[in-house]
């Protein structure tokens, strides 16, 4: 096996892909909630991705991503047997599990991939785990069977009602709480706006909320400061202080603005789809 070789590739829906990658140094220490930084090739940027799982015995890590940006579009070009230039990790602090009895994990869209090891990890740790998966529509639903096998209760929600129950994950969360379900913690994994509202519902009912944040970063070890965010009035680095923070302390509006910093450059990149997906870099 070559270092950082793709050993498995499965398309989960129209734009999401599950990869297993040989990265033994990362796999031996990876824990739910931690992330890696990858570089596709010599010319690639360094991007952080939360791991969707790992297998210490095989020395592989799991990444589930949506091909929406320059790097993820390039990742889509990699097939089994191809290699990433770099995978470094595990980074960030693992999900806090000790002392918890019952939690609700709420995943939005791509965030469900990252919620997967977290929710199943909680369950395996002896924490009773309720999972709420949310998607735009039926075509985008992922990991339903996997979650069903790995958590105590699963609810699948779609915005348009084309699969599972109709409605937002936040509505389901509130419904469960109002019906008398007790949670020590609500953990939100997904787009910032979805996490913001999920955490607000938890707060409304006096339940501790945790949000798994993503941010621009280069090194992932605290050196660049690009991922800094305002947590309870203090600057924290997502890479070393996070990625999970108390949801009630996150300055969501600032986080949402900062996560769009390179939006224009990224939109320009997407306009060059032909160059990006022509596979020129890998197969010439």
């Amino acid at each position: 096996m070559k270092m950082f070789e793709v050993t498995y590739k499965r398309r989960l829906n129209s734009n999401m892909v599950w990869l297993k990658i040989y990265a033994p140094l990362v796999a031996r220490k990876a824990r739910p909630g931690q992330f890696i930084i990858l570089r596709t090739d010599e010319y690639g940027e360094r991007i952080p991705l939360t791991m969707a799982g790992h297998d210490e015995k095989d020395g592989t890590i799991d990444l589930i991503y949506a091909a929406v940006g320059r790097t993820t579009m390039l990742m889509d070009q990699l097939e089994v047997g191809d290699c990433f230039a770099d995978i470094v990790g595990p980074l960030g602090k693992p999900t806090h599990m000790d002392g918890l009895k019952r939690v609700c994990v709420v995943g939005g869209g791509t965030g469900n991939a990252l919620a997967y090891p977290l929710a199943c990890g909680m369950h395996a740790h002896g924490v009773e785990t309720v999972m709420i998966e949310g998607f735009k529509n039926k075509d985008l639903v992922i990991l339903e069977d996997e979650f069903r096998a790995g958590v105590d209760e699963l609810y699948v929600m779609t915005d348009d009602g084309s699969y599972g129950e109709k409605g937002f994950t936040t509505a389901k969360l509130e419904e469960l709480i109002q019906a008398g379900e007790k949670f020590d913690e609500v953990i939100a994994v997904g787009p910032p706006m979805m996490m913001k509202f999920t955490c607000q519902i938890a707060e409304k009912y006096g339940i501790k909320s945790v949000a798994s944040l993503t941010a621009y970063m280069i090194d992932g070890t605290g050196m660049c400061g690009g991922c800094r965010c305002n947590i309870g009035g203090e600057d924290k680095f997502v890479c070393v202080d996070g990625p999970e923070f108390d949801g009630s302390l996150v300055d969501w509006d600032e986080l949402i603005k900062r996560s769009n910093y390179y939006k224009d450059q990224e939109a320009e990149d997407r306009a060059h789809v032909c160059r990006l997906t022509g596979g020129v870099r890998y197969h010439d």
Partner: peptide, 13 residues
């Protein structure tokens, strides 16, 4: 934390 403020480490890296 406005957009366009960064550390020298980030800019130079």
């Amino acid at each position: 934390n406005l957009l366009g403020v960064c550390s020298a480490n980030e800019y130079l890296t």
